[in-house]
Design a protein around this nucleic acid. Structure first.
Lengths: 212, 212
DNA sequence: TGTACATCAGTGAACGCGCGTTCACTGATGTAC
DNA sequence: TGTACATCAGTGAACGCGCGTTCACTGATGTAC
């Protein structure tokens, strides 16, 4: 939105900005933006208070910027993991598995995402649009069975969210997260009418290739 | 905890307290406690600022009291709806359907519950303890099939949470909520290995008797 | 290469508003007689 | 029933702290010559 003309001091500027954002990610992982004084942010970033307002209009702008960064990050990871994978059933579980991996690799960001779960159910959310397409394709091909597309989407989102929450809140390690994800994703595919044995295999493949 | 000796002025006291709590429920449904000034609470409750601190130690105490009330309320409703129902599969979907009904009947409270979703995954949560028992019984009897009890519990909680979120955030009416719940609960039971036709029937019974 | 300079991000003291909390006082309520 | 009283919840002005935000100034950076 606020595109700025590149300046000679761009590197200096970016360094300060990055420090602020890193501090914000640390603090937002713990509590909501309303409960975080600007003082805490700049202190952690080792930056003067005034600098904060050189970079962000206000606290809400700051929080929104960080949330948008994270969302874009996750979206990119999920769509990357499915590059070249055609089977809609595999795409579903691989996408969720990548979501879980994100929680393991970047727990700070995942925590922030979990807190701001507002628009998670919305159809317009890009992550959800991708899911919806996979579900629609799967139903069309007869690969997946679901009473309705809306319900299927809701069902999948719920599964993804709860896995994210479980990994973060219980502090699972990689092995535990992989085990739980495999079992839950198996149940998810069974819910779509995939036979138990194949569901397990697909779930295992997804978590193996992704969670490690 | 802080049991107090009954006084002559108990009714007067309770009236003020109820007004504060009602105001708090209105406001907490919109935003977190940190973002709600005490001024707003007492103004909406038509009560002097000082009264707030006659009743609650501080803002956090206030928010915690409201959250505990709501939780107890939901727990009572869910356990009531399953009185006399034996079949674990039916108990699962009826419990979740009651959860959805709660979102329809008391959207304010449901919104607050959704916001404070912190400990939702915890096994010790009474709602989850009940679920776990039903799942364990179902697996023992061969009525339900799941790769692990933990995964099954996670799966069910995720489904319940996402339905609550969908009803609240999309503002579904009773019919829409019933339709979505039926479809999602059918998929949930399929995930537990219940045959499609029977899963649909159980899901329909649960939402019919409960959501209306 | 060295020096003077323009640019622009960084700085932190200062401001004043709004907040949570306190407390001396008011007055409503039920009781004693 | 009526009146004096004790109790205790309600009241709201006052307090002072901490907050978000501003802005005049500093100094780092790259440029011109």
């Amino acid at each position: 939105l606020s595109e700025r003309i590149a300046s000679r001091q761009e590197p200096r500027r970016l360094k300060t900005r990055a420090a602020l954002i890193a501090a914000g990610e640390d603090l937002l992982a713990e509590r909501a933006i309303e409960a975080i004084p600007v003082n805490d942010i700049v202190e952690r970033a080792n930056v003067a208070k005034g600098s904060f307002f050189n970079h962000f209009a206000d606290k809400d702008d700051f929080a929104a910027t960080i949330a948008a960064n994270i969302r874009a990050n996750v979206e990119a990871q999920v769509s990357a993991i499915n590059g070249g994978v055609r089977d809609p059933a595999a795409r579903l579980v691989r996408g969720i598995a990548q979501f879980v991996r994100f929680a393991l690799v970047e727990p700070r960001s995942a925590r922030i995402m979990l807190r701001g779960h507002r628009r998670a159910v919305e159809a317009e959310h890009p992550l959800n649009a991708g899911l919806r397409a996979d579900i629609a394709a799967g139903c069309r091909e007869g690969r997946l069975m679901a009473p309705s597309e809306d319900a299927a989407l809701t069902f999948v989102i719920g599964t993804g969210q709860i896995l994210l929450a479980a990994v973060i809140e219980k502090g699972l390690d990689g092995a535990q997260a992989a085990a739980l994800s495999t079992d839950v994703l198996q149940m998810l595919l069974s819910g779509f009418g995939v036979a138990a044995a194949e569901a397990r295999e697909l779930a295992q493949d997804a978590t193996r290739s992704v969670v490690v």
